[in-house]
């Protein structure tokens, strides 16, 4: 494991290698070597399974972090490959050639985050939003509450309670909560 990570950091300029807990390691790779790195991990290192891929919106840093979660069945270890891509022209190499199921994730990422994957099959089609006209909803500048109030009709009489206060005052009044 460690020898592999050392080799990767040398050959692929992989940074931020962190072992989160036994069996889960995260590392960050550059955008231009990411596909080669994933191919290397799949073909040479036994990370044959793509658990999922998703994106994280770091609006403060101006990047999307793409997360490729790979699993090695032989060593029972999971490797999370992070790739930072530019937030303005969000585009990434498609990996549907490596794992065929990736095109579904890429279609979802394009619809919900607006990240383009040129060449991915059916990436232009609607996924779970049909006829969406706003900015992609999972981007953090999208104001969900405002959109929701503008689009859907609310029913009157719905209140909100603070769960901590509600538990302290109503559900467990004798314990006094943790105030």
């Amino acid at each position: 494991m460690n020898s592999m990570l050392e080799r990767l950091s040398k050959e692929f300029r992989v940074t931020d290698i962190t072992e989160r807990h036994p069996g889960l390691t995260t590392l960050t790779a550059d955008k231009d070597v990411a596909e080669t790195l994933l191919r290397e991990l799949r073909d040479r290192e036994g990370y044959t399974h793509l658990n999922f891929m998703t994106a994280i919106d770091y609006i403060e840093r101006g990047v999307f972090t793409l997360v490729y979660m790979l699993h090695n069945y032989a060593t029972k270890s999971t490797l999370s490959v992070h790739v930072n891509i530019d937030r303005v022209n969000a585009e990434m190499t498609s990996i549907h050639t490596l794992w065929a199921q990736a095109w579904t994730y890429q279609r979802e990422l394009r619809e919900l985050w607006g990240i383009n994957f040129p060449g991915s099959p059916r990436v232009e089609e609607d996924f779970c939003l049909e006829g969406w006209e706003e900015i992609p909803p999972m981007r953090r500048e999208f104001d969900t509450v405002e959109y929701c109030e503008r689009t859907f009709t609310s029913r009157e009489g719905r209140g909100t309670v603070n769960p901590r206060e509600h538990m302290a005052e109503i559900i467990f009044p004798n314990r006094g909560g943790d105030k």
């Binding site: 779970c128 939003l129 909803p137 999208f142 969900t144 509450v145 959109y147 929701c148 859907f152 009709t153 609310s154 029913r155 719905r158």
Partner: peptide
């Protein structure tokens, strides 16, 4: 309640 894709009523 505050979902962009789920109707309320």
């Amino acid at each position: 309640w505050d979902s962009y894709n789920t109707i309320k009523r």
